[in-house]
Structure formats: structure tokens, C-alpha cells
Design a binder for these strands. Structure first.
Lengths: 364, 364
DNA sequence: TTGTATGCGTTATCAA
DNA sequence: TTGATAACGCATACAA
């Protein structure tokens, strides 16, 4: 920060801008500047006016000793940590990545620091991490897809305001949910396929334990019903939101019910797997089968061909969440409306003239 | 803050397992159990034996009040935060994701908590985040691809031991580097293509500012030289490690020098872009052009066809890093050997009989 | 084995 | 405007 670069070159005696003493305290600065600790504190926090002369003396001392206030001590004394606990189910999931980015970027400006942890889809871990947040006295908590039931969340929210993404809860001053309209998204996607002339539309579902996954299935069924197409349980296969599950599900589907002309996958990762399984069998997309995903992961627009999918504005949702939690911390009321999803039509779907052409015996 | 939640549900008196007082202190527990604060502290940390009777009394009080020690106070008093600062260039990058997972999982067992932040490839941010870590008194720091120069890193390492991934530094007790052998990886990949009969092998490079990217270019050139193939600058295009850069580079390449039979991309994301650009032009992979990437992102095995690439064992590297930093904190010596990379041969490369067949005018 | 006293580095309250 | 002084919640050296 105060690196002057004047002695990078060997030869000249090195006078580092980062001094040796790692533990300069506020008190040391006060002594060096000839003022009281309180004055230094005031300057640091801008909590009161001080004489310019003293101000300068203190600032000089801070620069000279490269002093950095101890965040721990500050938090202990003030009761505020300026820290937000962010709980994800899996840090490494491409799906959460954009959320984290949105959260981090919006938190930086108001001066909060996010702490990311992941519970690995394990409800016990989720609890443990939440308690860890509380032990750390975070000022607020953002949950990405909480699995805990609402009453438990409500209990925890007494320690710090909580915002739950992708879920609707009974909103209060300390607990709020930002629901995502999975049902509508899935309905739109299915509707799109129907409009393109598809009638036998398969669905590869997500884990039955996920609320989202269920909503997406409901959306699929709703669109079918609206179009007067009977629901066929044989066209539904179980996936797990992962690529491997998509592969397996598609293989079962092709073996059992090979006449579908379109597949709607509960998420993009599932679609990647399904795509590969079809590729292996020589089934062309979209010539033989149309494919639609859900989430619009960054990679999806680089699939070959680029994937038609339901876009979740994750980055924006992340920003909203960050702003929301800050408002809750500041005791301001917030109004969170459900996030609408939009269908992004790319190149894995095509119009067919019903009845669907029989899928070809293209060479592998 | 002192909301006691005793009347969440109208009607039935709710007896929650999470008690009302959010700020139970160690002292309160001591009083409730009829012992001294130090005894409670000892039980909490297992730092000394206490009478079973007292032990039980304390544990009962802890359970009754749902007491959670204040991490801040504990750290302030002990001088240890049990926290590791992890600096990434971009939290949301699929490339860093696996590293983070490895780090997080290995840190959990020894009782450390990672704090992830990202500097967004900005060197000023990198410095700011590092200073933030120091202000938080983290016990150790892991850097994923540091951009700061070694002397600055050395300066910072006086505050907390630092481990730099993907870079070699002059190792000391407080600063260590875990280099990754990009050169060898790129050399192997190129060599593979040469062995398959390719002679006109294009290369889409990464940002010239990245050490890794340069090493990969060097590996490419080395393999060519070893095979007695002259380096042709016309076959090298500039990318940016992102998909968009891959698309653009491939388009330029095809326009300018359409006779290559293989492309080696500096990373997988670049390869995704290049793949799409070829797809758009009706150039088939691997029938017309062989394609090799670098990194082996999780998605790469689901590309169609699955991408041949150089695998970085990122998850394992993450684990190594976590173990390493813990050892450094404990003042144990560590031995870090460069990580070897391995070529994963999948389906985007194929053997050709030189001279390469002229690339087809397949319909778009 | 247990308790007392002191310190960790700040902020905040209260006088001056 | 400034400076003592008391928290903040815990760990720990020392004494018992």
C-alpha cells in the first residue's frame, strides 16, 4: 500500500515498507503519535473530529508502522463483525459459483466480508456450519438452498438475520426467503417443446428430496396437462442433478421407451449427461431428439450444439441476496419478489411435424 | 437481538431446543454449574482433567443454555484463529472450484476454517485481500495463482505462513510454493498429437501475463523441436483462457491458416470455445481436426466428443495445500514436490496418416 | 485438580 | 475535542 518501489533493485540496502513487527497495536500508535488510544480509535473509525495536527501525527505513525487494526478485537468490543456467513451445499458446484460471485461483489462495497462454507448436501453438516457461523458471531447469514426445516431456521435466525435463496419461508424481520419460480420455468420449457410439435416428451428428474426438483417436475406435468397431453410415467426417469445421473437415466430411457422426440432435463448437468449418452448411441441432437436443460450454466452456451435451457439469473440473485441481508442487518424492511426464470432458446431443440419421425438408425 | 421467540406459535407454548439468550457467556455457564470460568474453559478445550462431577455439571449447563463459545474472544485471548485465508483469482471459475473443495475438506479435520476471497485477477485487489487476511489474524494463507512478486509475498509471509499454489518460490519456513509442471504437461499433449501423425499443430495460447500460460507455450514448442518440426508462428493464436477467447482465436486461425490438422488449447475453456467455432463452420472433431485441452475440468469428459486433455489433479493439490499450510503453522518442515500432470486421452484426437487430409467442405 | 488474576486489542461511556 | 476507564468473552500463568 505504501510501497514506494525505490529499492527493488539489489545493491541498495533494502528498507522494506512492511515492517518486521507483526503485532503493532493501537496503543503503540497512540504512544508514537503522542495521543491517547481513544483518539486513534476515533480517527480509525471517523467517529469524531480531531485536530488536524493530531490526525496527521496518527496517520504518519500508522503508515510508519504499517499498522492494521485487529479485526477480532474490534469485533469483540463493538459487537459487530462485518461478516456474512454464506452457506452453500457445494462450493465446487458450477451452479453455486455465480451466486457466490454476485454475493461477494455486492458485499464488498458496504464493507462486509463473506465467509463461504459448504455443507455438502448433508443436513447435519448444514447445522454444524450454521452453529459455526453463530460462534463466529457473523452479522448475517445467507443460505443457498437450505435443507433444514423452517422452524429450525427460525430458531437460528434469532442469532443473526438469515436470507434463504431458492426457498419461500414465512418472512419476518430476521428470516426471509427469496423463492425462485421453478414451476413456471419448467412449464415454459415444456411448453416450448410442445409448441415445436413434440408430443412424446421425456423428463429426467432431479433428486426427489429437492424441493426445486419437485417443482420442476410439477411444471413439466402442468404444461402437458394444459396441452391436453396425457402424463406418461414411463417417460420420466430419475436423475440426481449430476452428469452421471443424466447418462444413466438416458440409457434407461432409450432402452425402455425409445420413441420420445424430446427430453427435458431437470438441470443442465443432467442434460450434459443425457447428451453424451445420446452421442454414444448415435442419436443426434436436435435432429433426432430435442434437448432442454435448466439453470443455464456458463458452459451451456458452449455445448455442441449450444443448449436450450431455462436461465436462472444467478449472478443477479446473488447481488439481490447480498443487498437484502445488509438491509436486514440494518433493520430496514425488504421486499423480495420471486425471481422469474426465462427460457433461452438455443440450438438443441427443433420443430417437428407430429407425429414425430421415427428416430434414425444412424451409425455410431 | 434479545428476541426470545417464546411465542412463535400462538396457542401452544413452544419449548425450543435453541434457548432464548443469544449471548450466553462462559462465565454464565460457570456460575450455573457452580465452578470457576477456568474450569469451564478447560473442559471446552480439554486442556486439563477435571472431576467427572464438575464435568457433567458444566456439560449440562452448556446444553441447557445452548452455549457456543465466542470464537472472536477465544482467538483474541489465545492468539490463534484456526482460520486459513484462501485467496483465489475468481471464486466462480470452474477451474478453482475443485481446489477449493480439496482445501476445504482437508482443513475441516484438523479444525481449521477456510475463508475464501477472490481478487478477480486484479493485483491491487490481491494486495487488499491479503491485508484483510492479516487484519483478521488468519493463522495461515493459501494463494491460488498469486500475481504479486516474490518479495512482496515474502514480506507478507512474516504475518502468517503462506503457501502459493501453481508457482515456485524460494522456499522458507514461512513461504512455500507448490509448482505445477505446466511445461511437461503441454509437452506431453503436443507429443501425443505428433505421435498420432499430426504435423501442422496449432496452439491457442493463454494470456501472456500468466506464468502458466507461458510455460504451456514453451512445452508446445519444446515438443515440436524434439520432433524436428519447425515452429510456425502463424499457427499460434492468442486466447484469454476463456471460452470467448477460444472462439475468436479459432475463427482467426481458420481464416488465416486453414490447413492445420490439430489444435492444442492452453486450457479447457479455450478448447470449448474453439470447439464451438469449428462446429459453426462444420469442421468435425476429431474427423477433420484433433483437439486437446488443458486442465481437465469436470465438464470436459461430457463434451461431445469427450475432450482429450491434460489433467491437473486439482482436488488432490487442494488437499496437499491444506495439509501443507497446517504443517507450516505447526512449524513442521514440509517437502513439496512439483505436481506432475497426466494426459487423459479421450475422443477428440485421432491418428492420421501424414500428410493430413485436406479438411472437408462439409455443409454448415 | 481448581480458582484467581491478568491480558488479548479494540470500542464505548463518561468526564473533563 | 480529548483522555481515563470500563467492558467485550475468553485463555492462561500462577497460586492454592
Amino acid at each position: 500500500m505504501t510501497h514506494d518501489g525505490s529499492n527493488d533493485k539489489p545493491g541498495a540496502p533494502k528498507v522494506s515498507d512492511v515492517p518486521a513487527a507483526p503485532n503493532v497495536t493501537l496503543e503503540a500508535i497512540a504512544r508514537a503519535a503522542g495521543v491517547s488510544p481513544s483518539t486513534v480509535s476515533r480517527i480509525l473509525n471517523g467517529s469524531a473530529r480531531v485536530l488536524p495536527a493530531k490526525q496527521q501525527a496518527v496517520e504518519a505513525a500508522i503508515a510508519r508502522f504499517n499498522y492494521r487494526p485487529n479485526v477480532l478485537a474490534r469485533s469483540l468490543a463493538s459487537g459487530r463483525t462485518e461478516t456474512i456467513g454464506v452457506l452453500t451445499q457445494a462450493v465446487s458446484s458450477p451452479f453455486y459459483a455465480e451466486w457466490l460471485r454476485g454475493i461477494e461483489e455486492s458485499l464488498y462495497e458496504p464493507g462486509f466480508t463473506p465467509i463461504f462454507v459448504s455443507s455438502r448436501w448433508n443436513i447435519d453438516d448444514e447445522k454444524a456450519r450454521l452453529e459455526q457461523f453463530i460462534a463466529r458471531r457473523v452479522d448475517g447469514i445467507i443460505l443457498l438452498h437450505a435443507q433444514l426445516d423452517e422452524s429450525t431456521l427460525t430458531d437460528y435466525s434469532r442469532y443473526a438475520p438469515m436470507l434463504v435463496l431458492g426457498r419461500s419461508v414465512h418472512n419476518s424481520a430476521t428470516l426471509a426467503g427469496l423463492p425462485i419460480d421453478n414451476m413456471q420455468g419448467a412449464r415454459d420449457a415444456t411448453h416450448h417443446l410442445i409448441e415445436q410439435g413434440h408430443r412424446e416428451i421425456a423428463f429426467i428428474a432431479g433428486p426427489a428430496s429437492h424441493e426445486d426438483a419437485i417443482e420442476r417436475l410439477v411444471g413439466y406435468r402442468t404444461a402437458l396437462e394444459e396441452a391436453g397431453i396425457g402424463f406418461d410415467a414411463d417417460l420420466v426417469e430419475q436423475g440426481d442433478y449430476l452428469e452421471t445421473g443424466g447418462v444413466a437415466a438416458m440409457e434407461r430411457l432409450m432402452a425402455r421407451h425409445p420413441s420420445f422426440s424430446a427430453v427435458f432435463c431437470a438441470n443442465d448437468q443432467t442434460a450434459y449427461g443425457a447428451r453424451l449418452a445420446m452421442f454414444r448411441r448415435g442419436v443426434r441432437v436436435p435432429d433426432d431428439v430435442s434437448l432442454v436443460g435448466f439453470d443455464d450454466l456458463p458452459t451451456s452456451s458452449y455445448m455442441t450444439p449450444p443448449l436450450t435451457t431455462v436461465r436462472q439469473p444467478t449472478y443477479e440473485i446473488g447481488r439481490l441476496a447480498a443487498q437484502g441481508i445488509v438491509q436486514m442487518i440494518r433493520k430496514q424492511s425488504i421486499a423480495l419478489s420471486p425471481i422469474p426464470l426465462t427460457l433461452v432458446t438455443r440450438e438443441t431443440t427443433r420443430r417437428i411435424t407430429p407425429p414425430p419421425v421415427k428416430r434414425g438408425d444412424t451409425p455410431t
